[in-house]
Each structure stands twice: as C-alpha cells, then as structure tokens.
Design a binder for these strands. Structure first.
Lengths: 236, 236
DNA sequence: CCGCTGCCTTGATAACCATCAAGTGGTGCA
DNA sequence: TGCACCACTTGATGGTTATCAAGGCAGCGG
C-alpha cells in the first residue's frame, strides 16, 4: 500500500531515525492509509502560529523553518527541522494552538497524520510515546546548548558554528573537489538563528572573506579553508 | 506506609502538579516503599556532571540549581528547579551520564527513585510517560522563550524579570506589610541565569535602587515600588 | 584584635554590536 | 531598455556591556 506520491512508510528513508521506528507493520500499514503525503514548495506553510493543531507532520525530505512572530509583528526564525523530524507534536501533546509557524524553506515532501490517528497509535503503543519523549528531551538539550552558546560566544563564533552545521547538512564538493554550500537561508534568517542582525551577519561574512577562509556570493559559499574554520569553532 | 521522614507520596503537597498525579494507589504505595526521602543542606549535590544516572529525584520542598561546567571549568547556573519538579529524568531517558550538576540551593526534601523502579512504572503505566512528555515539552518551550528573551531584551529587563519570578516563588510581606524577598542566589548565579556578569548585575541593582524601585542589602530585597517593577517587565 | 578570604561594589576603558542611513547589485516586469 | 523592488552590503555613530582593576565589607580563625 503506497501513498499517492510513492511515499510509503515502509520505504521511508528516514523512518529508522524517527519516532516511528518502533512501529509494527500493522501500524505502518495504517499510517500509510491515513497519512497525506504532499510535495510542498518553498515559501508555503504547514501551519501558522495560532492555528488549531489538527495533527502532526513528518518531514520526509527537504527543510522546514519554525518561525515565531514577535511583539512588533516580525517573524523570527527559531529553528530548522530536517528530514525525519516530526513537526507540530508539541501543540498536539499539550492540546494547544500552534505556538509557531512552520514554513517550508526548501521543496519538501511532508506526511500529515491526523490528530485522531496519532492519539490512537499512542494509546496502542506506549513505546511510541517514549520515543517522542526521548526526541523531545534531545530538543530541549539542544535549546539549552544554544542558550549557553548565545550567552558565551561572539556573533562570529555563532555564525561559523551555524555555517559548519549547515555544511554538514547541505554541503557538497564541486567539480574541482572543493567544499561548497548552498545556504537555504536569507541573511535575516541567519541573523535570527544566531541571535543577531542582518547587518552584523553581513559584516561577519565580509571579515571571514577577507581572512580568506571562505568566499560568499549570494547564498553560494565556497569553503576555502575548512580546517581553519573548524578549528575556530567554540569548543563543543 | 510512610517514608522515613514522614514524607509519603500520598500526602505529598506537590504530587498533583507532577508527573505522578496519574499514578494509582498501588503504584504510590510501591513508590513509598522504594523511594529514599532525604533532607539535604544547601551546598550539597544530588549528582554531578558526568555521573552515571542511577535514578531520578523528585523535589518535595526547597530549591535545586542545575549547573554546568564550561570549558574554563567555571560552573554556570543554567536553571532552577522548585518543589514538584522531577530532576535528572533526561539522562535517565536518554540512558546517558548526567550532563549537568544538580546542587541544593536551599534546604530541601528530596525523594530518590531508582532507575529500575522508574523503568518498571513507565512500562506499566503509559500515562506516566505521556506526563513526562508534556512536562518536557513545556520545559523546552521555556528554554525557547528564554533564548528569545536573552536575544531581544537588555540585562536590566532580564534582571527585573528574574526578580519578579523569584518574588512569586519566594517573596513575602514583612511586618510592615511591605513586599520583601530573600534571594536564594549569589550575584554570580543571577548573572549566569540572565546571561550576564556579576558586575553588570551589580550595576543594574544600583540603578534600580537609585530609581527608588527597590532596596538591596546583600540578599535581602525590599520591593518599594512593585507596581512600577511589574510595569517595566518585557511584554509577556 | 588582626589579618585573611570571599563576595560584592565601583570605576575606567574598550570591544562588540544594534541602529540608522545610504549605496550596490541582481531580478522581474513593463 | 529602463524602472522598481528586493536582499544585501557598507559606513558612521552611539549604547550596552564585558573586562580589568581596585576598593569596601562582612565573616572567620588565629
């Protein structure tokens, strides 16, 4: 039983890294039947801040940004979610409206699972809940980490850190074998992620460029001296 | 069946606000038998960063500080845990060593529950896991919030915010009916919590004092103009 | 009583960074 | 082609805050 887009839970590349890895075949079959896999374009949204939580989303491929509106109405990027991540389960579990907007940042394949279905699965399979729990504990630890980082390190360090994280996720080698990266984020969003402003990010970029560590052209990055970049990361 | 110190789960004031509120009488009886309630003095530790996780701790009364060592070996206060909070469950769930130190900040009554016992309870009662999950989702949301706060507000705002939070927890009225507060934290720890330095905290204190909003004498605080203090809090 | 130690305060300085403002460059559209 | 719009860059400035350094003030043991 395959989803409309040829996306079956059984063949899902990311399943084994997600909450669903402990699910039985019967449960996966059920999931396959009720889920709604969709290909979504960058710029669209899975849900908006304030929306009722109708279910959860499982990201098969692509990239999703979690945004929040501040008092002034500006939307601030809080974090990124990649393939294998389940999105929106917090609101589902708390039974509240979504506290953030989930925006597609790169063309993505997403599976939607309705609230009732998840509820049923959770009741049937206690392990599923535990897996969500572990996942969330990790998320929380990451936030703790980032909080710590923001306090203790300069914008430059945080920027380099993000750059290397993005390289690990989206980097590749060009035809000359040099490490390159296509940033999936605007300067504004980079700034939000590291707790800074677009101007300061831009200045950091110029500096890193002047030092010959990397070359930036729009969202294309050529990592000239990746060893030195790594070396300059804050001690993890 | 009462614990050695007269601390029974049945009579626990905080039980209804914790993970354990969904536990059956039988389970509570079991807990009462196996848990190890202890009164601990300020300055002692529940566990240290790097320790094997032997079980989880339930704080009945008092205050616990979660600390982490940075690269330089300084210990940084990350957050506070109050009555009703379960401590150390993250490492338990992830099966890792403790990533932080839990230090008693005020004389506290703490119940210890061994790993095996928790494991058994979790397997028996799926709801318990869900409750932990909800709790953790809230924790993560709080970190998200604080991260956001640290980025967007000045040290002064963050300090006032902490001051009012502490007042809600530990404040009282003196014989003249004035709101007073006994800070359970050193300047150093206050600084860490709001992502600043002792010096800057001290300056903030002086400023607030000059403005006639509050008077500080060591760790004793007299909140002279509590309304104005509230008014100056960042919009929640 | 003295000196010691740890915590807190105060002062001077400079770095870092946000903010405001103006300019650049690319892309789409008429 | 030219215009407009957008994201990005660069410049100038000032504010906030970290850092270094010195002094005050309690508690403690001798």
């Amino acid at each position: 039983m395959t989803g409309k887009l040829g996306v079956s839970c059984f063949g899902c590349q990311t399943r084994h890294t997600t909450e669903w890895c402990a699910s039985s075949d019967a449960e996966l079959t059920l999931l396959d039947q009720v889920k709604a896999p969709k290909i979504m374009e960058a710029g669209t949204a899975l849900f908006h801040q304030g929306d009722e939580c109708g279910g959860i989303y499982c990201l098969n491929s692509g990239l999703v940004g979690i945004r929040r509106l501040d008092a002034a109405g500006n939307s601030t990027l809080l974090r990124l979610a990649g393939p294998g991540e389940t999105i929106g389960y917090q609101s589902f579990l708390l039974g509240t409206a979504h506290r953030a907007t989930a925006e597609i940042m790169m063309p993505s394949t997403v599976c939607f699972i309705r609230r009732q279905t998840v509820r049923g699965l959770l009741e049937q399979n206690p392990n599923l809940g535990l897996r969500f729990l572990r996942h969330n504990v990790k998320d929380a630890a990451e936030f703790e980490e980032r909080h710590f980082e923001t306090i203790s390190f300069t914008v430059r360090s945080r920027f380099l850190n993000l750059l290397m994280v993005l390289y690990e996720r989206f980097g590749s080698l060009n035809e000359d074998g040099e490490p390159v990266l296509d940033l999936p984020l605007s300067r504004q969003d980079i700034a939000a992620l590291i707790g800074s402003t677009p101007e300061t990010v831009s200045r950091s970029i110029s500096k890193v460029q002047d030092e010959g560590l990397a070359r930036f052209k729009g969202r294309k990055v050529l990592l000239q001296d990746i060893d030195e970049l790594m070396r300059q990361l804050p001690a993890s």
